[in-house]
Design a protein around this nucleic acid. Sequence first.
DNA 1: TTGTACGCGTTATCAG
DNA 2: CTGATAACGCGTACAA
Lengths: 362, 362
Amino acid sequence: MPSKTRITIKDVAREAGCGVATASRVLNNSGPASADVRKRVEKAARSLGFSFSATGRALQSKRSMTIGCLVPSLANPVFAEAVQGAQEVLLGSGYQLLISSSNYDGAIDNEAIATLLSNDVDGLIVTMTAPEKSRELKQARERNIPVSLMFHDPLDGFCSAYVDNFEAAREIARQFAALGHRRTGFLALRFATSDRSRNRYAGFLAECRARGLPDPALIEISEAEAKTPEKLADILREHSGLTAVFASNDFLAIAVQKAARLSGWRVPEDLSVAGFDGIEIGRMLDIPLATIETRPAAMGRQAAETLLCALQGGPFEQRPALPFQFRAGATLAAPRPESPTAAGIAPQPPSVPSLKYALKQG
Amino acid sequence: MPSKTRITIKDVAREAGCGVATASRVLNNSGPASADVRKRVEKAARSLGFSFSATGRALQSKRSMTIGCLVPSLANPVFAEAVQGAQEVLLGSGYQLLISSSNYDGAIDNEAIATLLSNDVDGLIVTMTAPEKSRELKQARERNIPVSLMFHDPLDGFCSAYVDNFEAAREIARQFAALGHRRTGFLALRFATSDRSRNRYAGFLAECRARGLPDPALIEISEAEAKTPEKLADILREHSGLTAVFASNDFLAIAVQKAARLSGWRVPEDLSVAGFDGIEIGRMLDIPLATIETRPAAMGRQAAETLLCALQGGPFEQRPALPFQFRAGATLAAPRPESPTAAGIAPQPPSVPSLKYALKQG
DNA sequence: TTGTACGCGTTATCAG
DNA sequence: CTGATAACGCGTACAA
């Protein structure tokens, strides 16, 4: 039965035949020590397999060297990549990431922040439902704990690493309009709890109005519906007359493509589709997805860098929004004179989009 | 300028006019207290906005209520989902997740575990390059810190939440063989550092041999090649004569489909493709991907449950491998009499797979 | 029922 | 150059 208890600096000091203060100085290079005692301490530490207890250090130094991170869900690759980005920045810094996810539940959001705070985190990286009205987030600021938001527009005194969803969505509206689309729709998942989704819709709507186009239909669906193309097909059929759909993320957009095929509609001839995020797989599709390319990992990195900077005594400054880029893909085309979704019924047998786009990509 | 320092139980005790022990007993419901003092303490705690310091508690109780989690990368949705699953199990338990990722680097793996250990984690959930030869992992066991592996076959004294990659890969070989494929390939990413990839190849190879078929070609590619269908197409063309490719994960398999299209090959008529993992998007493709469905989130959940059980004094037991399921998709077909990849050159114009499979799925 | 005092592992202080 | 000691926030044994 091997040793059950932690090896502490006391053990090292005893083994080396010196006081704990000396051992601490040697191991930390934080003060004078004779070459002799230095050797003994180092040897003792090595042979005992000593390592510092972060807990003891945290208590003494009042810095936990820990950063709390809250995201809605790691099952969403966008957030997962952002956390990975933050993790990479923090890797050599001595800071550890304490993570929580809320599953998009605003109540859990706040509980999670409270828990993170009571874990004495030195900083916070947060994406949540309603940062603007979170008492816990304000508490963090009152305790002078720097908070980096991710994915949110900058807020109050909190810095944020984000893309301008409103502007990006306007770009989609422009692309639709340039092709001649008038009857468009915005497909949203978790509209009520996602400011990203709302901002995208707002930008899309604003640009449509600015061009004198009809307001886009706001189509909210459930997670179950998003995952079941058959249901999604039913929903799309209910919204007759749409010639272009802007999905609030790429996964949804791919589901729309699938649903369209199930209804016998061709993409993009019968229905144009655009997504948001720019996930890698979108480029691998038979018909590559038109989308807004963003860099979630860069968001995580920036959030972590900003925080690190503040933690190390530097300024805690808002940086400009991260860039996005429209990716044309092949899911956008001019609407047909008479849209088959307007016609209502009788799905036509799909035609042959494969060749055209395979060549286009080649 | 709001309060800068932490509110401790001393502050509460002073405010309530009692000793710290009494305050502690009240706030923890851990001992007797008169109704009177109870009121005062609770009121004081509330008005001061007191919350316990996890650090102080950890030091005193020798339990950090923290679980360390190491995965190769959160940018891989499989691992991200697993961590999310673990997180969900831990949510109400009082344990926090301290996460690290190694970016598939075996040296960082071990550093990360050492760091986690020095953070006094109470348990460990780990996926790494070489758990079987990790000194740090053994150290954890010597300290009686329970370790749950994820994705690895059970090892030594460590429990693992995993699927039987070897058996699952045999199933792919069976499917290929049943259709009449003889010249097959295994496309691997990070073969050297992923026992999953190796086990899948081993199972695939074993079943091929058991059936008297030629050994499958082992095709290792780089991450850059995986992300660039054009390069992948070049590589596939170099391996002439293959009629079926088993990719070590779904992302790769989707890239293969893309690469095949770029070469003018039809999937599955000219080339059968199978993946591994069972990601959602595979079902949404024009030609749904044949794959092995696994449940990464369930792996994370099981790993966390097993750990929690041990942490709460229960048995620390290996559970049976998690189930997997072959999903037929539409990327598998019998090989053509003369394979176009064997023929060597002259990509033929793609034919019309869309209709056939759209109907099949409807 | 209550409060004092100690120890958890660490580092900073300060006297030797 | 060295080492004893206080302090960090907490829970608990023990004394009142």
